[in-house]
Nucleic acid binder design. Structure first.
Length: 583
DNA sequence: GCCGTTTTCGGCCCGACTGTTTTCAGTCG
């Protein structure tokens, strides 16, 4: 268990504990703190290293009491008050809370009356049918808990945005065809384009909600129906993700869309703002007393509250509302702005297709140019290119560019040059100088300290031929942790050596991530958005990269490959001449 | 326990669905 996981779990268990005691407000405070720590990841420890309790208190939702707990944990490896809680209430609260339908009050009752401490105990008392006789429980709650355990065991946790988005779009299309449906969209974390999504939030308007609900719970991929109400239903789909559908009258669509786009922290801040103005905000509109002020559109609601409308990607409950109030929200990069993909692989190394096929696919997708960035010789197991093969590939690219006509994107000579453990590169400088554009990346020796990894990358960036650092943190969501990096030092190095950082759009990478994009934007470090395409199909992933850029408050100016080919060349040549430019 | 256009005290988002209840508590999003 990582530090972050422990702290999140500890805060979550305190939240539930206080809920069991019927405390009205501490549960929420601990809940928000847990979410905040979970979202910040290793930045929590960075903050603590930098300035202890004082710096921890600067983090959102962290005050004196929780900062002291975190400080105690980093200093001693323990938290005395948490140990005391576990002694007084020796229950795996966190594990039990993941069962659908099991909340703090029932966890308390199950422990106090039947001694249930963990999932195994719960399964046992359910089998013995002991739960149904407890006050507040019955036969149905027994069934519901048993079903909850089953669903939890079969759930695969959070899902990658890139895997769920196509499914959600398909479901929206099918629901839209139901007679009586006027509008149907996905909302929630999908609409915010979070890198992972926990469930699919759907919203529809219809004059006949019950008909829509019936069709929804009977979709072919529905495996279990959690709830089937008149205006809200919830199901588990066969791929292990839940989908919720809410149906409302067409005239309140704007208010409901706002409400279900969230996230939770954003909505709470917005509703608290409404209260300060003597108003009430819910999914049916903005009200003064019983009088409806507006519900027609998201924009109307934000405007009535004195705010510009933050794009969905920014609604995370940090500082977007204060920017909305001061009219300083960024002019986000529009979808479809990227003109060329500067990281693509072919069958010269580990891609599936020829250079020509990739250039055709890119053109079909609407791109003007692509860089061919096959792996280099250190990656021998996938036939990485040495200097000779780079030169040979360059000749093929020259030929294709000469005969390309209208059906191929312009092809740039490039490579995904491997960064060796000492920070040197595995192509010689002469070869690097012959390329139109040079990307570098780490592919091995991932177990480094923060200091070593940071030094290694900065040394690699200091090579005067380098233009872009690919997938800078090396993470693979759900498979590999990012190597530890001093991101501020990396950004300073990128700025000093005029190296762009990549936003890699591949679904399990999405690297840089949103927080780091925002740091780069603030630091004035230029960015590329690339798909890392290994197949012609992969160009469709570009919009995922654009989504990350938007979540990081990036504008068109921040993204180099929104430039035309000529502008790109001019940008590259500010660093060094490109004598062999193919285009 | 956190936080500040209410700033070191006094507030703290809101509603649908379910099941166990006879009017509501618990859970969820």
């Amino acid at each position: 268990m990582t530090d972050t996981e422990f702290l999140t779990r500890m805060l979550f268990e305190f939240s539930y504990w206080h809920d069991m005691q019927d405390d009205a407000f501490k549960p929420r405070a601990y809940q928000l703190a847990a979410e905040s720590i979970g979202a910040l990841g290793h930045e929590v420890k960075e903050a603590w290293r930098k300035g202890g309790i004082k710096e921890l208190k600067e983090l959102p939702a962290i005050g004196q009491a929780i900062a002291e707990k975190i400080d105690e944990y980093f200093r001693t490896g323990r938290i005395r008050s948490y140990d005391a809680l576990k002694k007084k209430f020796p229950v795996d609260i966190y594990g039990l809370a993941h069962v659908q339908g099991l909340g703090p009050k029932h966890i308390r009752d199950l422990y106090e009356q039947l001694g249930v401490k963990n999932l195994k105990d719960l399964e046992k008392v359910l089998r013995k049918q002991q739960v149904r006789d407890l006050p507040g429980f019955g036969e149905k709650s027994e069934e519901k808990l048993a079903r909850g355990i089953l669903l939890m065991k079969r759930s695969t946790g959070r899902h990658l945005l890139g895997h769920i988005l196509p499914l959600a779009e398909d479901i929206v299309t099918r629901l839209s065809r139901i007679p009586g449906v006027k509008q149907c969209v996905y909302a929630g974390s999908l609409r915010r384009r979070q890198e992972t999504v926990g469930d699919i939030d759907l919203l529809a308007t219809s004059s006949d909600p019950e008909r829509v609900m019936k069709a929804f719970v009977h979709l072919p991929e529905v495996e279990t129906v959690h709830e089937h109400g008149k205006t809200r239903s919830s199901v588990r789909l066969s791929m292990g993700i839940d989908a919720d559908l809410r149906v409302v009258p067409d005239k309140v669509f704007g208010a409901t869309l706002q409400y279900f786009t969230g996230d939770k922290r954003h909505n709470i801040l917005l509703r608290e703002r409404a209260i300060r103005q003597g108003l009430l905000l819910n999914e049916y509109g903005l009200f003064k007393g019983k009088k409806l002020l507006t519900c027609a559109s998201e924009e109307a609601i934000y405007k009535r509250l004195g705010l510009d409308t933050p794009p969905p990607e920014l609604r995370v409950g940090h500082d977007e509302l204060s920017a909305a109030e001061r009219h300083t929200l960024p002019d986000l990069l529009p979808y479809g702005s990227v003109k060329g993909d500067l990281q693509t692989q072919t069958n010269w190394s580990d891609g599936t297709s020829t250079i020509r096929d990739m250039a055709v696919a890119a053109k079909t997708y609407g791109l003007d140019y692509i860089a061919i960035t096959d792996h280099t010789q250190s990656l021998a197991f996938i036939n990485g290119l040495d200097e000779k093969r780079v030169a040979k590939q360059g000749k093929e690219i020259d030929t294709l560019n000469k005969q390309r006509g209208q059906s191929l994107a312009r092809i740039l000579k490039s490579a995904e040059v491997d960064i060796k453990p000492d920070g040197s590169l595995d192509l010689d400088d002469e070869t690097l100088a012959s390329l139109d554009c040079v990307g570098i990346a780490i592919h091995s020796h991932f177990s480094m300290t923060e200091k070593e990894a940071t030094k290694r990358i900065i040394r690699a960036m200091s090579n005067p031929h380098v233009d872009c650092l690919f997938h800078p943190t090396g993470r693979l969501i759900g498979k590999r942790e990012p190597y530890p990096l001093d991101m501020k030092a990396i950004l300073a190095g990128a700025k000093k050596y005029r190296v762009a950082l990549e936003i890699n759009a591949f679904p399990d990478r999405t690297d840089l991530r949103d927080l780091h994009v925002r740091m780069a934007v603030d630091a004035g470090v230029p960015l590329f958005i690339n798909t890392d395409a290994h197949d012609p199909e992969h160009f469709t992933l570009l919009s995922l990269g654009e989504a990350i850029a938007r979540r990081g408050w990036a504008t068109k100016r921040d993204i180099i490959n929104t430039k035309s080919l000529n502008q790109l060349r001019a940008w590259l040549e500010k660093k060094r001449p490109r004598p062999n430019w193919t285009a």
